[in-house]
Design a protein around this nucleic acid. Structure first.
Lengths: 324, 324
DNA sequence: CTGAAAGCGCTTACAG
DNA sequence: CTGAAAGCGCTTACAG
């Protein structure tokens, strides 16, 4: 009963007799033996670990319920397929690419999952360049047909939301979008513009605000929006938390929602249901986004699958803030 | 320039000339060389990785904003000290102890952080038994003086909250606590009982409800509470989400809050501020809990520090639900 | 100050 | 079906 035999039993090699297997397994159990994962990884040149690349600052990271929710989906699928998860612990200083490179070059992970996609994303370029397995939550800027990704149809979601606001009589619709380098921002702005165009409403750049995903952003822009000479009568916001900031501002200014201004947003966080003015919001199903992105990654690692996309359906929940 | 020399440069051995160091570093940079982490871990018998043990079901995991927030604190401190984070990906079947054992026996982690403590916690017993570095978010059931942990004074928080409700004229205070096996539940119930005792209010077991941390729990018990022959006029809930469930039920039943029944809860989630009835809630500062628990773990790993506790202050935010 | 050698604990052709 | 041997890529006494 050599070390080779034990190793073969662990990997369940078909060339070992059942009798030996049973014997070895019994002894392993008695001794509480577990193979050393590092030695294993070194010999096999794989780790069974997946790196999860979270957005840069851990500060803003968990403010948005999207990330924990998506992480939940990732955990779900990883656990089923028996992969471990290594979390990126980005400090402000390090950029994402640095962490990606570090995880890969030190052989800590077999694959990576990126939780957001940027326009001209250098992490994606790098990963494509070295042909390292990864998948994306979000839509890639280019080479869509060569990348595995899970996303909503954000263009369509924003389009529908805009159409809906027009259908309830709104004429002048402002938008607070997120970081302009994010693909999700681009897609949603595209959809918003398309809806305006189709309804012969001219797109005005001064109605488009961009900022970070926090309450203050909404609060700040809410004021600016209300103080415009030519006031908007509706507002689309890229995240509930930001929308809350705006709503808070409007309430402080005694603006009536949705009569003076209707508000619709994204993420359908629990907040949007329970807020003093329940918010119309798009449920993007983040758990499912995470789960499918993980599945795609596994597909990429185990079957060299590439260029597969999964579109997760969204749901618009109409509530008080648009008189829904 | 042998492999030993390179290795010594990487570990910044003092016995290498500055000249050689510079030369090696330059070449490493040119070649984009990174040492293989698995080989390193194998040779050095340590990984630079910390295992984060999250509550059993990933389902309930992220419903409560406590966990992502605490994780944020953990990430913060780990990143500063240059540790990687390995996430436990518990499926329903596996119990926590199994994962703890697996992480340790396969040498995947140098230390563990437990995100909750149970009464008679078998993971804690195991870790103590084999003398493996770990720290706890929460208070241990026993051997307090031998375990590193970060927690709030939950007994005092519940005590204060109860005293506060009594001070606004409430006489019959019910409580919805969490899982009865959790230390946090025990502590809060203790504080609640102490406040009653001091005010000559008899503790009644039928006013104490226990359940899981979700909205349904609150909704269900809200009904039961309102249908009691001898109705409570106040309710303490162990989590905002559960409290919302109860509030929702009370609203459905046309019960006036806080006049008919006052509601106070824990976690001060963003929800509690923005709800249609803003909730009085205790901010337990989860980010800081995570950060300090991680610091304690590092202390334990690097300096063999043990039995150190850090108590994180809480803050009670008084809002509409108690007429605050 | 630096190199040759052994060792960390596995896996996997190779041989039988 | 099973064992002896080499190799995975590092680190670290040991020797010089």
């Amino acid at each position: 009963m050599s070390t080779s035999t034990v190793s073969r039993v662990i990997s369940n090699s078909p060339r070992i007799s059942q009798k030996t297997k049973d014997k070895v397994l019994k002894v392993m159990d008695e001794l509480g033996y577990y193979p050393n994962a590092n030695a294993r990884s070194l010999a096999m040149n794989k780790t069974g670990t997946i790196g999860v690349i979270m957005p840069t600052t851990s500060e803003e990271l968990f403010l948005n319920p999207f990330f924990p929710e998506a992480l939940r989906g990732i955990v779900k699928s990883a656990s089923k397929a028996n992969y471990d998860l290594l979390l990126s612990t980005n400090t402000e200083k390090q950029d994402e690419l640095k962490i990606v490179k570090n995880f890969i070059r030190t052989s800590k992970v077999d694959g990576l999952i990126l939780m957001s996609s940027k326009i001209e994303d250098e992490s994606i370029s790098y990963l494509r360049g070295i042909n390292f397995p990864f998948s994306l939550i979000g839509t890639p800027y280019n080479f869509e047909d060569q990348i595995n990704y899970a996303d909503n149809d954000n263009e369509m979601a924003a389009y529908e939301l805009t159409i809906y606001l027009i259908s309830i009589g709104k004429k002048r619709i402002a938008m607070i979008a997120g970081d302009k380098n994010l693909m999700v921002t681009k897609k949603r702005v595209d959809g918003y513009k398309r809806a305006l165009l189709e309804n012969n409403i001219k797109f005005e750049n001064e109605l488009l605000y961009k900022g970070s995903f926090d309450e203050e952003t909404g609060y700040k822009y809410g004021k600016q929006i209300w103080e415009m000479k030519n006031r908007p009568d509706a507002l689309i916001v890229t995240d509930d938390l930001v929308a809350f900031g705006a709503v808070k501002q409007f309430q402080a200014l005694n603006v009536s929602i949705p009569d003076d201004i209707a508000v619709a947003s994204f993420n359908n966080s629990i907040l949007s249901r329970y807020s003093n003015i329940p918010l119309t919001s798009v449920d993007i199903n983040p758990v499912e986004l995470g789960r499918q992105a993980m599945n795609l990654l596994i597909d990429s690692m185990e079957n060299d699958q590439k260029g597969k996309k999964i579109i997760i359906p969204y749901t618009i929940h109409r509530r008080k803030s648009t008189d829904g």
